[in-house]
Nucleic acid binder design. Structure first.
Lengths: 186, 186
DNA sequence: CGTTCAAGCGGATAGGTCATCCGCTTGAGA
DNA sequence: TCTCAAGCGGATGACCTATCCGCTTGAACG
């Protein structure tokens, strides 16, 4: 990203500040422009699509997610490491309402986002591999399954209250373990 | 619902037929009107909101859900009964893309829908109670938690492929069991 | 049947949102 | 100070939703 002219940097920051006060799912670029005191054209030049703005709002959270995944990789017990990462990812996704969309989007506006996402997924994959090797997790689960499950639990928590997080997370974590006994498969 | 005039019944049926061919999440009433060969006004008279139409598209599925819940209540083993219901509910929700919205909506357009939903939830609640009494499920889970979890798993399956259903369902079912050992709660 | 009219129909259109385009302004390098 | 690429604003065309009202029609009744 080339250095921005000072006025452009100011506009961009104002837009992001205002956008942060809005629900990510119902962002209206024209409304953000009005509240930020800039022209609509300015918003659309900085962020050609709503997704571009949502992405920009999530870069900090993405960095936090990467940091967490690396911290999790340093945990001696692979099962605990994976669990720590899953818990953190879920918490971050619940805090940042746009993160799920950014993580799942196949296209990224910003090159930096693409890079961080790749690094997160790579770390995530090695966490899973280690946990599997340690027999801490069902062998038939892929990184995709886990990512989708986290998004699913996020969805479930959003349908209820944040207070449900610990319980629903625990249900997921328990379900991920290799099951000792045959389970009903009707 | 008072008996419809023959032309009104015909219009209504045409609208529903066409609407069934559309994605529930992106239904456009004007588009449905055009395709159904009726005026926009006719669509809006029969279905004042998109949700009213979505609801109408789901009445059959709701009936199936109620029937399934009663079948599940007749299963001798309470744990198996609950599992059967959860599996069926998830399958129905995946088949009917508008069902989750109908089930979760606090307001119902049609009185019949309100009634069926109440009966489903009542049966669901007694299935849970029986399973809990039999020690087949964690004691701290409510009907709300389970309903939200099913919606969460539905979400997870939709993010991937329908092939993921058996595995993700099993993860949920295993996680719902009372856990024999202490779990990592970091 | 013919008559009557409530029920139903169609679609023009008012109102609202989105995103582009272009003439004006300004930061900053020379 | 001069120059002009970069940035800005907002008018506006394109599109979408949902209402309203004058016209049409099914069906009840004598």
């Amino acid at each position: 990203m080339a250095a921005l002219r000072s006025d452009a940097a100011r506009s961009r920051a104002r837009i992001i500040d205002i956008a942060r006060t809005h629900d990510r799912a119902t962002l209206r670029l024209n409304e953000v422009a009005r509240e930020a005191g800039v022209g609509v054209g300015t918003v659309y030049r900085h962020f050609p699509t709503v997704h571009a703005l949502v992405e920009a709002l999530s870069v900090d959270t993405l960095d936090a997610m990467l940091a967490t995944s690396r911290r999790a990789a340093a945990v001696p017990d692979p099962g605990e490491g994976l669990a720590l990462y899953l818990r953190s990812a879920l918490t971050l996704q619940l805090e940042d309402g746009g993160l799920q969309a950014v993580l799942l989007s196949p296209e990224d506006e910003a090159e930096a986002v693409r890079t961080v996402k790749r690094e997160i997924f790579e770390t995530f994959a090695s966490l899973l591999e280690a946990a599997r090797a340690a027999g801490a997790i069902r062998a038939d689960l892929t990184v995709g399954h886990l990512a989708h499950l986290v998004c699913g639990i996020e969805h479930a928590v959003r349908l209820g209250s944040p207070d449900d997080l610990p319980l629903l997370l625990q249900v997921m974590l328990d379900g991920l373990k290799p099951q000792p006994l045959a389970t009903y498969t009707g």
